[in-house]
């Protein structure tokens, strides 16, 4: 009906595409560069890894190259080192994240107080987190150095050690040593996240509780902890995944040694590709890592659903 008077006006030439279609097209057009970037560096490599995992492909043994079907996966099931790395990963993640959390929480509570020089201490606290991973690894290698390292020296002077310890080449001490380093690196992350959470809690709540006679410890238990819960969950879940993936520290400090004592699944994948140049098997490990990550990510999304908006 509205069209009835349209005959008076001169009809505009109808555009080739409707307005809606053009808008959509523009939207997709803006995504082309990102597709090119991630297609070549994530999507295609992952597909390629799946393909490579079906071949025997060791770079310096080209004569043995060939299709082996699921052979690499059968090898994986029988590979004791692989199962060991899963256990090591668990120890590494659990040890690192739990201690990082405790240290980070303590640091956040300290930094939440008002005192002179707070900006300085805040910035300093962040340092271990923001410097390159290789720097952290080398700094600690130097601290752990048996003859000239400061850790042995201090412990000897305090009388806690009788003789010098080779922290990173002792199978029993290497894992605790790399975990300690990772704790040092990760404390700032929890400190910053939890500090943000603390600052978001309104002061009035504490005031009201004080008026009602709640003591320091009660206020902490009944106000601070429950209100921090969402951010604690998000931060911890994130950390667990990143720590599981994190290869730099261990790779630089011990390369997974001594005798695979610190070999976690991600460093094992790295060493297989980089040191052994066994591409077929490294790709198999990558696919397995991918599956583990997918499970982690789904769990992560379930756990953090609805919490994300808080951060």
């Amino acid at each position: 009906m509205a069209r009835s008077d349209a005959s008076v006006a001169v009809a505009l030439p109808r555009p080739l595409l409707s307005r809606r279609a053009r808008t959509l097209l523009t939207g997709y057009l803006y995504l082309v560069p990102v597709a090119a970037c991630l297609g070549g560096t994530i999507v295609f490599p992952i597909l390629k890894a799946m393909h490579m995992s079906l071949y025997n492909h060791v770079l310096f043994k080209p004569q043995e190259y060939g299709f082996v079907g699921l052979g690499n996966y059968r090898r994986l099931l029988r590979d004791e080192t692989f199962w060991l790395t899963l256990w090591n990963s668990f120890v590494w993640v659990f040890g690192s994240v739990s201690l990082q959390f405790v240290g980070g929480f303590a640091a956040a509570l300290l930094l939440h107080q008002s005192f002179r020089g707070r900006p300085f201490v805040r910035t300093v606290t962040l340092l271990p987190w923001i410097v390159p991973g290789v720097v952290v690894a080398l700094v600690w290698e130097w601290l752990y150095q048996p003859n000239y390292g400061v850790i042995n020296d201090v412990l000897l002077r305090l009388g806690w050690l009788r003789e010098r310890v080779a922290w990173l080449s002792d199978p029993g001490l290497a894992m605790p040593a790399v975990i300690a380093t990772n704790v040092w690196r990760g404390v700032p992350f929890f400190a910053v996240m939890l500090l943000a959470g603390l600052q978001a809690i309104p002061d009035e709540l504490y005031e009201a509780a004080r008026v009602d006679g709640a003591r320091v410890i009660q206020r902490f238990r009944h106000i601070t902890l429950p209100l921090l819960r969402p951010i604690i969950i998000v931060a911890t879940a994130t950390r667990i995944i990143w720590t599981f993936n994190y290869a730099d520290l261990i790779f630089v400090m011990t390369s997974g040694g001594p005798a695979n004592a610190t070999q976690i699944t991600s460093t094992y994948t790295l060493v297989t590709a980089y040191t052994n140049l066994d591409f077929g098997y490294a790709a198999t490990l990558s696919v397995v890592l991918l599956v583990i990550m997918l499970v982690f990510t789904i769990l992560y999304l379930r756990v953090t659903r609805g919490i994300e908006s808080v951060t």
């Binding site: 490579m52 991600s266 790709a283 990550m293």
Partner: peptide, 30 residues
């Protein structure tokens, strides 16, 4: 822009944050 698959894409960008670099080493190197 509201287009089909927008939320899926956003989710993929989030999920990629969880990806380890070691996973890409072997295929990228080759």
């Amino acid at each position: 822009f509201r287009f089909a698959g927008r939320n899926a894409l956003l989710l993929i960008f989030l999920a990629t944050q969880m990806f380890p670099a070691v996973l890409l080493i072997a295929p990228l190197l080759s």
